[in-house]
Design a protein around this nucleic acid. Structure first.
Length: 653
RNA sequence: GGCGGCGUAGCUCAGUUGGUCAGAGCGCGCGGUUCAUACCCGCGGAGUCGGGGGUUCAAAUCCCUCCGCCGCCA
């Protein structure tokens, strides 16, 4: 059952993304990383199956469609198309885009369910608990927080009904043993340790069905039940591989070589439920699971980092960042997209959280791409035209950069094997720097002046040779840029000609006629950039004295919030501390100067209007994460109150 | 509350089993160079390796403790 060498397909997956929302930076990050892996493996000559897709079932999707007055299929079609469009813009080349509403997938899910029910791993039981429709998750009584969903804080529905369970518990021991026998199963190691302790605490059987609804996969032969969305979703990896109807394909593809994901869906799903399902099906487990961290926005108040979320108004759109980068640098749009791909994988060690800021994007672009790599080409290729009539010589004698090239390739391979993308890029840049230094040391311009044009030619050959190798190395990360470098070197840049095995010294064909050098990464003048920003700001402020634009007003995130609790702040006459549910994971703490007019008990239960993206502040030792609207110029006179049926989190505008 | 991790140059971070381990990149300063996108190359760190204590001939690296931060679980 183990796929092998010649026929083996390198199978890499991203999770399938829930269509309740449009693609955001987290999705992009995972998918870009998977694309880098896929491209790297293709470059190495391996057959690759790179699968991504969309997770389209569930009540939440159904309700979102309804809310927009669309039928659910049209709704999911639209969002799936949005994902595909985004991936295209990101230069992502997947081999399969799986949608859970595909009939083949539905059939696979039902097949698996049926098979496991027949084997006894899925058994009927009684579901007792609390269900959060927003999270599609059920909780035991003791897991609730203040009677609400522990994940999102929303209210939960009591549910007691027949349901099917999967015997996760039966496989806990085996999973634990597997983890211990395969120390590299989960990357990074720290996550593996977390999972080990998670599993050591024991696993509960998972409820894998729900009361039948209109937008999910029915349990075979039981119309009263439908299949739990996570159970449905995980099976996508099997569907893509051809399970169970295409055994030939399946034999070549299974198991996945690597499954990439955000750290949030590792322990409960991919590292436990998923392996247990595979064990129950008697299928091999994926070779490796790789969990990455979050991108966070720079904190405005220096108190730490803030997770990116719409409510905080700090959403980062990498495609927008690419557009901005193209604008401020004058770089080609495709180069800018590649530069953002480079940035995301170079800036932060894969696995850790990172700060995404335009400042650091500009820094990376200038320092790494424009100065180091771009300038290497730009200072060497013109010399080939000037001294050598545009034609590289044949290499002769010992190539001086041989060891540097080989060391870079090895370091790069090793890093890529461990999904250490920043390490791989670092290794390549050591080679870039070495080549820049080599040019300085050998000064071909001086050699030429002194009449040693042949020697100058050898130096330029070696530099071009390094550029060619570096282009191979960065090709998985910056496919457009790599091809452009090859074009400028006068090489044919096709999938057949660009091969990893040619990441070796002396493989640049003799007498290659180099192309026209053209700066790929136009350097950004940071001073001008800052000046432009300052001027623009000044202009804006001046022209709009006393008035706010619609866009400015739209920056104020007003939302309905339900006051869960209120209390006086000791030794403060005017302040009350409110706990307000604004429809997020956690209710917020808000300090408000309402005490002169209101008693805490006047406020509890009210649905008020909250400024959700106000800069947080610490007032009298309490952390205030927002502001509630009230009438009254100085002292509060009346609260701005919404009708009680308005759900917390509803946008107010 | 339980388990685990982190706190190293202005910034972001590397530092396997204790002994060239006090480092890299960025930024900054100086110098060189001028082929190049004011670039590149070289040189420059008086950093108590969070505080304190301990083990050792020797600790950023092991142990204890305190402070701060984070993750998973409850």
């Amino acid at each position: 059952m183990e796929k092998t060498g010649a026929n083996g397909v390198f199978y890499v997956t991203t999770p399938i993304y829930y269509v309740n929302a449009l693609p955001h930076i987290g999705h992009s990050y995972t998918t870009v990383a998977a694309d880098v892996v896929a491209r790297y493996r293709r470059l190495r000559g391996q057959r690759v199956l790179f699968a991504t897709g969309t997770d389209e079932h569930g009540q939440k999707v159904f309700r979102s469609a309804q809310a927009q007055g669309k039928n659910p299929q049209a709704f999911v079609d639209e969002i799936a198309a949005a994902y595909q469009k985004a991936w295209k813009a990101f230069h992502i080349e997947y081999d399969a885009f799986i949608r859970t509403t595909n009939t083949t997938h539905v059939a696979t899910v039902q097949y698996v369910f049926d098979k496991l029910r027949a084997s006894g791993d899925i058994y009927p039981g009684e579901y007792e608990g609390w269900y959060c429709t927003a999270c599609e998750s059920s909780f035991r009584e003791d897991e609730l927080r203040d009677g609400n969903c522990p994940d999102c804080g929303r209210s939960v529905e009591h549910a007691s009904q027949p349901a099917y369970f999967f015997r996760t518990s039966k496989y806990a021991e085996r999973i634990l043993r597997y983890l211990e026998d395969h120390p590299d199963f989960i990357i990074p190691r720290s996550r593996q340790n977390e999972v080990i302790s998670f599993v050591s605490a024991g696993l509960r059987d998972a409820c894998v069905s729900r009361r039948r609804t209109d937008w999910d996969i029915p349990v075979p032969d039981d119309d009263s039940q439908s299949i739990y969305v996570w159970f449905d979703a995980l099976i996508n990896y099997l569907t893509v591989a051809g399970y169970p109807d295409d055994p030939e394909k399946f034999a070549q593809v299974w198991p996945p070589d690597v499954q990439l994901m955000g750290k949030d869906i590792l322990p409960r799903f991919h590292a436990t439920l998923w392996p247990a399902m595979l064990m129950a099906l008697d299928l091999p487990l994926p070779r490796q699971l790789v969990a990455h961290g979050w991108w966070v926005a720079p904190a405005s108040d220096k108190t730490g980092l803030t997770k990116i979320s719409k409510s905080k108004g700090n959403v980062i759109d990498p495609l927008q960042a690419a557009a901005n980068l193209a604008h401020v640098s004058g770089a080609d749009g495709d180069v800018a997209v590649d530069a953002i791909r480079y940035y995301m994988l170079r800036e932060v060690t894969f696995g850790l959280d990172g700060v995404f800021s335009m400042d650091s994007v500009v820094d990376r672009f200038n320092a790494d791409l424009a100065n180091d790599l771009g300038n290497l080409l730009n200072r060497s290729l013109p010399l080939v035209h000037r001294f050598l009539a545009g034609c590289l010589p044949a290499p002769s004698g010992d190539l001086e950069l041989t060891e540097d090239i080989e060391a870079a390739r090895q370091a790069c391979e090793q890093a890529m094997d461990q999904y250490d993308f920043s390490g791989a890029l670092e290794a390549l840049w050591a080679l870039v720097r070495r080549a820049n230094k080599f040019l300085d040391e050998r000064a071909p311009w001086n050699l030429h002046k002194a009449g040693h044009t042949e020697a100058a030619g050898q130096v330029l050959y070696e530099v071009a040779d390094v550029a060619r190798c570096v282009a191979l190395g960065i090709a998985p990360f910056m496919p457009y840029v790599a091809a452009e470098i090859w074009r400028q070197l006068g090489l044919e840049e096709t999938q057949e000609t660009m091969r990893w095995q040619d990441f070796a010294p002396g493989r640049t064909p003799a007498h290659t006629a180099v192309g026209e050098p053209r700066p790929i990464f136009p350097r950004i003048d940071v001073n001008k950039l800052q000046q432009a920003e300052v001027e623009q700001k000044a202009r804006q402020e001046k022209s709009t004295e006393g008035l706010v634009t619609l866009a400015e007003f739209a920056r104020v995130d007003l939302r309905a919030g339900k006051v869960l609790a209120a209390e006086r702040i000791p030794k403060a006459d005017k302040l009350l501390k409110l706990i307000v549910d604004v429809g997020e994971d956690q209710p917020r703490e808000i300090v408000a100067g309402l005490a002169p007019r209101f008693q805490p008990e006047d406020l509890v239960g009210l649905t008020v209007v909250v400024v959700a993206n106000l800069e947080p502040a610490t007032i009298r030792g309490a952390r205030s994460q927002g502001m509630v609207l009230a009438a009254g110029a100085q002292e509060p006179v009346a609260m701005v109150v919404l009708s009680p049926d308005c759900p917390p989190g509803t946008k107010v505008r």
